[in-house]
């Protein structure tokens, strides 16, 4: 009996509903609090961690039992092509300033972060995980896999980056007298991915469209460039 219970605790039968319930809990917490700081993943992951600890389930076992969710990450990355296609007309109108900013911004975000971390004395696992910090999570996970960075740390960094950019970014630009919604949206999409895009949609539809466009293009560009660079340095 005890053995069967043990098996149930480590099977998808328990773990998948646990994930779903935790996700709904995180979503509710986020909506009730109304603050970007409590992104749904914050409450959800804290709840899962608490359950794993109290039931004494090993993290690798939990991970294995969550295989279905990992399997859906691939199709989710592919699905990003749809909003990208829908927003493609915008880039044709704004033209080359967007293209230049995209390339510079996509390079600047990881370079600045890695330089600061190097100066602060970080070791290689931390530096690798910082490389994908500004791209949307499913892409960052795929990249982390390619350059052998720790997936969990990568997700944590990506989410934290998104929250910092989305919460502190727009007021900062306001102080610098930058009011153009195209500029605010594009900067949010490049530096704060999906969390920044959600924030941009609250500012205006134009702001949101530019953020979604920047997020998609930045993700694709980083996913192509980063593993190439990592290959050169190794």
């Amino acid at each position: 009996m005890a053995e069967q219970l043990e098996q149930l605790l480590h099977s998808p039968l328990l773990v998948l509903p646990l994930n779903a319930v935790a996700f709904l809990f995180g979503l509710m917490l986020y909506r009730r609090s109304g603050t970007t700081l409590l992104h749904p993943i914050v409450g959800a992951s804290a709840m899962v961690a608490a359950v794993l600890w109290s039931l004494d389930i090993d993290y690798p076992d939990y991970q294995r039992a969550s295989g279905l969710l990992y399997a859906l990450l691939g199709p989710a990355v592919v699905a990003l092509a749809v909003p990208l296609k829908q927003n493609l007309g915008i880039i044709r109108r704004a033209g080359w300033p967007l293209a230049v900013t995209l390339v510079v911004g996509a390079a600047l975000a990881p370079v600045v972060a890695i330089l600061i971390a190097l100066l602060a004395g970080a070791t290689e696992p931390a530096l690798l995980a910082l490389a994908g910090k500004s791209v949307t999570t499913p892409v960052a996970l795929a990249v982390a896999d390619k350059i052998h960075a720790a997936q969990s740390l990568t997700v944590g960094i990506v989410l934290f980056t998104g929250v910092v950019g989305a919460v502190l970014g727009p007021p900062l630009l306001h102080r610098l007298e930058i009011r153009d919604h195209r500029v605010i949206g594009f900067a949010l999409g490049i530096n704060a991915h999906a969390i920044g895009t959600a924030r941009a949609l609250e500012i205006s539809a134009l702001c949101g469209a530019f953020a979604a466009l920047a997020m998609g293009l930045c993700g694709a560009l980083t996913a192509i460039a980063l593993p190439l660079l990592a290959g050169v340095f190794n």
């Binding site: 996700f23 939990y62 990992y70 969990s152 740390l153 990568t154």
Partner: peptide
């Protein structure tokens, strides 16, 4: 999306 990367995020 948040549900899909929940297992990886919990690893933090």
């Amino acid at each position: 999306l948040a549900l899909l990367f929940l297992p990886a995020a919990t690893g933090v």
